[in-house]
Amino acid sequence: MSNNMHDWLNQHGDFLYRFALARLRDPHLAEDVVQETFLAAIKSPSFSGDSAPRTWLTGILKHKIIDMMRKNVREIAASDLMSEQDANMDEFFDDAGRWIEKPMDWDMPENALEQKQFLGVLQNCMDKLPAKLSALFMMRDVHETDNEEICKELNITKTNAWVMLYRARMGIRKCLEINWLGA
C-alpha cells in the first residue's frame, strides 16, 4: 500500500493540489488538504480498484476541502455575525437609499475576463475581505455550496448569511472599481 501511495503522490499530487488551490485559493491550506487526503487514503480500506485512483483520491479531497471550509467559517465568532440592520448601515447609500457613488460603466472589453490584470485585481480584492466575510464568500461563490446547506452546516441563520454575502460582494465590487478602473 505504501509503495502504491508514493506512486500516487508522484502521479496525482500536482493534480490534487491544483484542484484544492482552485477552491481554497490559499497555498498552505491547499497543501494541508492534499496531505490529509493521502493520509486518509492510506487508512481507508475502501479502494477497490474499480475506479481510477485519481477519481478515488479526488473524492476524498472534495470532502477534505469542505471540512476545511466549514472549519474556517465556524471560526466566525458569534459576535461577528451580521443582522438585517447591518445590511442597511453602510457607506454605499444615502438616507434616501440612493447610491452615494454611482456604479461606473465598466465597459468590459470582450476578453477582460481573460486579462491577467483584471483577475489579479479581483484576487487582491477577495484577499482583502475581512476573514469572517471571506470564509463564507469562498464557500458560496467559489465553491458553489448550496445556501441551505451552508446555514445548516454552520448553524447561522439565513439572515446572517445573506447579509454577509451581500457585504462581501459590495466590498469586492467597490474594491474593483477603485483598483481596476482607478476611480
Binding site: 499530487g13 500536482d14 490534487l16 493540489y17 491544483r18 484542484f19 488551490l21 482552485a22 477552491r23 485559493r25 497543501e31 492534499v34 475576463l113 481573460e114 483584471f118 483577475l119 479581483l122 484576487q123 477577495m126 461563490d141 467559489v142 460582494r169 469586492i172 465590487r173 474593483l176
Partner: peptide
C-alpha cells in the same frame, strides 16, 4: 464577478505550471 471567479478556478485547475 461570479463568472470571473469561476474562470479563475478553472484556470488554476488547468495550469500545469502550478505544482505541489
Amino acid at each position: 464577478m461570479c463568472t470571473a471567479i469561476n474562470r479563475m478556478s478553472q484556470s488554476i485547475e488547468h495550469n500545469q505550471d502550478i505544482q505541489l
